[in-house]
Amino acid sequence: MKPKQSEGDSPAIEVRGVTHAYNGHTVLHDLNLSIPAGEIFGFLGHNGAGKTTTMSILTTLLRQTAGEVKIAGFDTLSQSIEVRKRIGYLPENVTFYNDLTVYENLAYFARLSGVEEIDAKIDETLAFLDFRGVEHKRLKTFSKGMRQRIGIAQAILHDPAVLFLDEPTSGLDPMGIKNLRDIILRLNRERGMTIFMNTHLLSEVGKTCTSIGVLSMGKLIYTDTMEHTRRKYPDEASLEEIYVRMETAETS
């Protein structure tokens, strides 16, 4: 299964000079970022650094004050519909229509994404997530972990080229976190999806991501591949220590 094609050989995500101001405060300063297709990109930063604002801009939910964003080669402002056809998005603490069944919820979002063979697609996706048999249950009875899986299902049903995950491990138990990690890796490996993930959990980043970026007070202070990062900081035992060093260097 191949995800939807990009425009030419353009990077999956390209951010040029993006600035965003809100109520007179600049929350993002001149962001520049290029993520090639096929990466699993971990976007790090403390609370309030501007990660969710960045993700909202990348997913067309928010219009940046200045700068340009292209997803799979399409501009988020002038070609937002084309962008939306190529992205999947899982917000933090996802909610659904509780009175509808899993099938009805998924079919709804699938139709809105232009999926044609709805039943087959839902079946295939639930099988991929190892979550068959819940189709006709209403969502109000579901636990946090189950909802999270439905959240992923709605995000990947239409085979997006780029998948955006906002703090996907938030509130999950260790088993849930492990399952999620496996899903992310398989989506990347088997379906070739580019994944952009906001997260706090540095241990997870170390285990899943192929490249990272660090945002501090609205500025992108670091971005590189995982491999280079480890080489650059040979003295630090864990990613956590690397992150702390970067943040301290930035603030001091």
């Binding site: 084309e82 939306r84 998005y89 909610t95």
Partner: peptide, 14 residues
Amino acid sequence: GSNTSRLLLTRPVS
């Protein structure tokens, strides 16, 4: 109140 609106607004729908 919920973030289903975020799911809706990221679909290719005007």
